[in-house]
Simulated assay, not measured.
Amino acid sequence: MIKYSLLKTAAAAALLGLSATAAQAEDVIRAVTFTPAQVSFAQNFQGFVDLVNERGAGIVQIQVIGGPETVPTERMGEAQKNGIVDMFLLPAGLYLNVVPEGEAFAGSNLDPMELRAAGGIDLVNEAFAAKGNAKVLAHVDGGGSFFLWTNQKPGIDEAGQLDLTGIRLRSSPLFRAFLEELGATSVVQNASDVYTSLERGVVQGTAYPVTGVRDFGWDKFLKYRINPGFFQTDVLISMNLDSWNALSDEAKEIVNQAAIDHEKSSYDANVAENESESKILADGGIENIELTGDQRKLFLETAYDIAWKRLQERDPTMHDALKAVFFKDL
């Protein structure tokens, strides 16, 4: 795999007699996304790219070089750590093996702006820098949760909890333990493989945000959506730390402010998109199963407890500090 890095040059400065400042070319940041270009997460990221490229003309530019076809999703965390590419649109849950503290994003019940104001981004960046050689710039596409989507109607156990026994669900490292706690058989695979798995009956459903279900074409096979949503979407814009440090101060300011602005605008857009997509899916025949009362509370407590317990087991060093900032008691 080709190793990309930030490209900086003072092309022809000596020949032209220009000052180093005047002759310095734009910083070029090469980026990849965890979903293919047609999926809403990648499309939303393009809005951030456009914002940086507009504000950073002559100073800093972002080039999106591809998605999982460029760097396999399961290798993106290591690729970021090793500087294979400069910038990633990548959920924290897809590289918890590298930075287990990324669990805090899914385990949070604060929106991204509340989290930033509380110092959450600064705090978690201590772990991302030390373990992932990375810097988190923004928690984007907030305002959404993961939902269970199935083509079989789930049951309820004696304790009143949702019972997924006998149902095979596509999973990811982020929510595998939660699905297994509910009795499901977990099949870990990339989102790009789910369509074929649903088509062939390898799985009977998946867990995923509302946005993305139609993009991947899964609505053709799914019949039920279980509410409420659990966890929080944990999509991050992050950079290899060495690439970040190599940027000029002016470029850093442009990229950082664009990330903060996009964090808020993507949240607002995602809330609206979740509402519209939910209606389209319901109108298309997907039935909503609504957990209420004690059943709802038990479902959410189970999800959040698993997220924080998993961090505690993997590395308890920052568990208490992160939970105090990232989570408000239900």
Rank of each mutant, 00 (worst) to 15 (best):
A104W: 08
A13Q: 15
Y267I: 02
E26A: 07
D122I: 00
Y95N: 12
I121E: 06
A79D: 10
N256F: 15
L174E: 09
L7R: 14
I62Y: 03
D122S: 11
G155K: 12
D215F: 02
G142W: 05
S266W: 01
G143D: 01
E277R: 12
G120T: 06
V49Y: 01
I65C: 04
D122N: 09
N190F: 07
G205M: 09
G67E: 04
G293M: 06
Q61Y: 02
A282M: 14
F327M: 05
F178L: 07
N240Q: 09
D193F: 14
D249T: 13
K264L: 08
E69W: 04
D234Q: 04
E74K: 14
V187M: 08
K8R: 14
F128A: 01
L6A: 10
F216K: 08
S278A: 14
V124Y: 05
V32L: 03
G77S: 03
R55K: 15
E26C: 03
R214A: 14
Q161V: 07
N274G: 14
D242W: 00
V28M: 03
A191R: 10
R55E: 12
I2S: 09
V194H: 07
L96A: 06
V202I: 15
A104S: 12
V271I: 12
Q61R: 14
L298T: 11
A57W: 01
E199A: 15
I29T: 02
T317Y: 10
D219C: 11
D329C: 00
E74H: 12
F34D: 05
M113H: 11
V325Q: 05
L247V: 06
R214F: 06
G83Y: 04
L330H: 10
M1W: 08
R310E: 12
N151F: 02
G229Y: 14
A303Y: 13
G155I: 02
I62L: 09
A57N: 09
S186K: 05
I226G: 03
L281V: 08
D320I: 00
W149I: 13
K135C: 02
I260E: 12
G107M: 01
E78H: 04
N125M: 07
T33S: 13
D50W: 07
N82E: 14
L16M: 10
S5M: 12
E287V: 15
V32M: 04
T33N: 11
D157M: 02
V98E: 04
M1D: 05
